[in-house]
Amino acid sequence: MSVRVAFEVFRYRPEESEEPTFSTYEVDCPDDWVLLDALNHIKDEIDGTLSFRWSCRMGVCGSCGMNVNGEPVLTCATYCKDFAPGPVRIEPLAHFPVIRDLVIDATDFMEKLESIKPWIIRDEEKPLEEGEYLQSPGELLDYKQYTLCINCMLCYAACPIYSRHIVFTGPAILALGQRYNLDSRDEGADQRRDVIAGPEGVWECTFVGDCSRVCPKHVDPAGAIQQGKAQYLAWWAKKALLPKGSK
């Protein structure tokens, strides 16, 4: 079984026009095709000039995120038949600058990713002969959810705050910071404070919650950000209220 679906695809070719346009393609999509299959069919059989990113085809690499009818989704995990007969509008991930067609510029995200120091930080490393850092299953539960992020950036495309204020560190990166701050083996919360609790960090978030709604891995970045607010507010209150020496 297959269904005919009309795709309206965002096209931006800076060498031809300063403004984007939409190209429409009609494709017979077998029931088991996802949107990425249809895009590959368009590129291979109809219009070889179409540009887009993809890699794993199984919801792991996070490369094929696009806005479909205004909603950020992984195109490798969204079936064509759900949109038949269309038209279904495919656009590059919202809020990011577009380089070409469906390809966005992720430089801002990559720079922010590094700024959060996404690794375990210790005040002092213990010698190897003392063995690994042990952790209870409960302590693992505190942050496990946040390890599932695949950096697909759908949460950024869903976040109106990021669109209006691009300096906002954003959902995935702040959730990643919390992933390490909540890890019982980590001692780097102070080093991440400037990014997480700074003017472009968690306080920019107004808790719209769409980042969590669109997350294909159920990471819940909105939750991580609210917990970050509580954590750093407690730190600030302790610093402001307790006498020196007892902090």
Partner: peptide
Amino acid sequence: MTKRYERQI
């Protein structure tokens, strides 16, 4: 540098 198409809500 390649031109970017900027979008904002």
